[in-house]
Design a protein around this nucleic acid. Structure first.
Lengths: 157, 157
DNA sequence: TCAATTTATTTGTATTGACAACTATTGTCT
DNA sequence: AGACAATAGTTGTCAATACAAATAAATTGA
């Protein structure tokens, strides 16, 4: 038990779910912090790195696709793209087929940067998850699947 | 596998750790969103509710203690207390023994609000984690412990 | 055809968070 | 006592996020 709660106004099982969220918050911010520190040498945050990587890999190339891929609101992604475009790492352009859509493309500068940044981030990630067995990772995926299901979030496959 | 990555510039095991962070981000924001929606009727966000609950339970009663308890920077907690104080839910006062310290105390209004809000939040939390077995929860705690350890974060017991 | 709806994106506003710099107070060491 | 370090807290600045409202373009249906 990572946290001991002293005065329990509520039942232990209720405490345990609150602790669950605390645990998730801790691990999330620890992972983000580690990646942020590693990518600072490139002038990137970890979230910016992920978006650039999505573009480089062709996983998504419009604001909506990028937002869905990362589970964010489109407006948040729009601001993220503002920041990355301002740094000269990507370009937005209206598509001709459907003039509602915006196509996001890395600039040469963005491509060069992400080629250097991804291996660094990958090393951090591998190190962070070292010692976590495949069985444990599968359990984590199952937990996430169940909780998202309970909250009405459909998770793709 | 919740996400299928198409063009893999990197090895599968590296992908899996990136996906791990995506999963954690999804479940975190889903939990926060559910609690935010449930507490909106009280004019509270889920994070504000947690801080009020910490105070009500006596788990922490200075900015530093509250920040440590929630794994946040003290400056973030200071702003959080600004917002809660502005709403009239708590009061800050310098302590006499050590005039560097600030004591945080709920107002009657804050106490009344949190008494109504906590059962609602607890129901949401129990619902969110329904179907996750004690064994799975223990595995989650183990994973968090390992990852925090890998990243050099000492976790209390 | 054309009005209503849906889709894609941006912008306004607010919350949350980190880091750095600052003030104020307390503790330590010589 | 006095200098220096450690502790507690706030404030400035910026990134990241959500929600609501607005705009513009495409689709649908009568």
């Amino acid at each position: 038990m990572l946290l001991r709660l002293r005065h329990s106004l509520y039942k232990p099982d209720v405490d345990s779910v609150f602790v669950g969220r605390l645990l998730l918050g801790r691990i999330m911010s620890a992972l983000l912090e580690a990646h942020d520190k590693a990518l600072a040498q490139f002038g990137l945050t970890s979230r910016q790195g992920i978006v650039l990587m999505n573009c480089a890999r062709g996983e998504a190339n419009t604001p909506v696709e990028l937002a869905v891929f990362n589970g964010l609101d489109v407006s948040s992604m729009s601001r993220m793209l503002d920041r990355l475009e301002k740094k000269g790492l990507l370009r937005r352009s209206r598509t001709d087929k459907d003039r509602r859509k915006v196509t996001v493309q890395l600039t040469p500068k963005g491509r060069a940067l992400i080629r250097k940044a991804v291996p660094v981030a990958a090393r951090v990630a591998v190190h962070a998850w070292r010692g976590v067995s495949e069985r444990e990772r599968q359990t984590l995926r199952n937990i996430v699947h169940k909780v998202l299901g309970n909250l009405g979030h459909v998770s793709k496959s």
